[in-house]
Design a protein around this nucleic acid. Structure first.
Length: 370
RNA sequence: GGCCCCAUCGUCUAGAGGCCUAGGACAUUGGAUUUUCAGUCCAAGAACAGGGGUUCAAAUCCCCUUGGGGUCACCA
């Protein structure tokens, strides 16, 4: 074993690009082991050798390394090398805290329950099982892989991380990689650790998703649909998924959100109804079934099945019946999609197509009769 | 505990002595728009940890206190 003998009277100091002047008292630094008994050099020694060898000019690393720095400085000096410029940036903290984000099992369990972090875990528990990737037990938001697995955009993750402990000015929020590379400077790094903010991450995700052209969104959604077994060969469904994604608009935030619209992919007899919605919008209202049956005939007679044509036909039918949107639209939505929410009503009908709409209407009406 | 770092709205931040009755973003609340949801638009509430200095003037400089954090391996 080899130790480096520290000069007890020495003062070790660095001028950190971010922390400024930091000093240590040599008398308080224990002689560091630089090589093991078996000849294996240790980190603090090896890293210094590497930095000298590779002519490293700047060491930019997280603040937790600050306490290693005096030892490394001593070694640089002992080896007669010019030490690099150090910049100790703050680490990423757990949401709502100043504590270093940790991967330790005990901490993960704490995060899972934290109000700020919970929604990211919930996404994992919702999405991962559908993909056959386990749950938040196997992949969670302290892992980079999580973000890709649940359909975050790299742009959003990068943007979010960039703004943690750094800002360009008092208003720039949305930044691409190129922009950050172009504009990042060490002197604007904040000194205090910053907690990851899941809400803000999600907001960046919304922004970058909104900037994505339709075809890219489709590219992003197809693999999720396939892994979830909702479609087979991706290319065969491209056009259909494209229409759905377009109708979904801003509703699609994560690529995996497409999985919550399974009603567009399952066969009519496998459609799952939201029981509460079914009860409230179809079962309970006085005229719901009667109106659904009547509108079914209108749909059956529609020769052009586009959203705009359907809406026109719907309007004139409403007039002739003397009813308004509210009287029928909710029942119609639940009948054809099984759910209370979704894209625009007529987009929904058009995407499903005539045959499926009629089948589902019949099925819903029959369901009430039982 | 020793050593070191840090401290502006709930969160991420702007602020490098007067431009600050402290700005922006996310979140929150209210309103508008809408066939649902999402969105969009408008508006509101919300912070300089405390105490001493220095100065004509301090969120900004100095000191102390308090609070928070990192690190203390023959790991990296």
């Amino acid at each position: 074993m080899v130790r480096y003998l520290v000069d007890r009277s020495a003062k070790v100091a660095i001028d950190d690009e971010i922390r400024g002047h930091v000093e240590w008292d040599g008398g308080l630094i224990p002689d560091p082991v630089i090589m093991r008994g078996n000849g294996m050099p240790l980190y603090n020694f090896a890293t210094v050798i590497d930095d000298i060898d590779l002519e490293i000019t700047h060491v930019i690393r997280a603040e937790e390394h600050l306490s290693n720095t005096p030892v490394q400085m001593l070694l640089f000096e002992a080896l007669g090398a010019t030490p690099p410029v150090f910049a100790h940036i703050p680490f990423v903290a757990a949401p709502g805290t100043k504590e270093k984000l940790s991967k330790r099992e005990k901490k993960i369990e704490k995060y899972r329950k934290s109000p700020q972090f919970k929604k990211l875990f919930d996404i994992a528990d919702d999405v991962l099982p559908k993909l056959g990737l386990g749950s938040s037990e196997t992949l969670n938001p302290v892992m980079v892989a999580y973000y890709e697995a649940v359909g975050f955009l790299p742009e959003a993750v990068l943007n979010s991380l960039s703004r943690l402990g750094w800002s360009l000015d008092d208003k720039t929020e949305n930044m691409s990689l190129d922009f950050v590379v172009e504009n990042f400077t060490l002197d604007r790094v904040v000194k205090a650790p910053a907690g990851l903010d899941p809400d803000k991450l999600l907001a960046y995700q919304e922004y970058w998703m909104s900037q994505l052209p339709l075809e890219k969104k489709v590219d992003g959604c197809l693999p999720f649909l396939e892994k979830a077994g909702l479609i087979d060969a991706q290319e065969r469904h491209r056009e259909f998924v494209g229409r759905l994604v377009e109708a979904l608009g801003d509703r699609l935030k994560l690529f995996s959100d497409i999985l919550s619209y399974d009603e567009y992919f399952v066969s009519d007899d496998h459609l799952v109804y939201d029981e509460k919605a079914f009860e409230m919008r179809i079962q309970k209202p006085e005229r719901a079934v009667e109106l659904l049956a009547k509108y079914r005939e209108v749909l059956a007679a529609s020769s052009i099945f586009t959203a705009s044509a359907l809406e026109e036909g719907f309007k004139s039918w409403m007039e002739s019946e003397g009813i308004s949107y509210g009287d029928i639209i909710h029942a119609l939505r639940v009948a054809v999609s099984g759910k209370a929410t979704g894209p625009g009503m007529f987009d929904c009908l058009a995407i499903l197509g005539q045959e499926r709409c009629l089948n589902r209407l019949d099925q819903a009406i029959k369901r009430v009769a039982k």
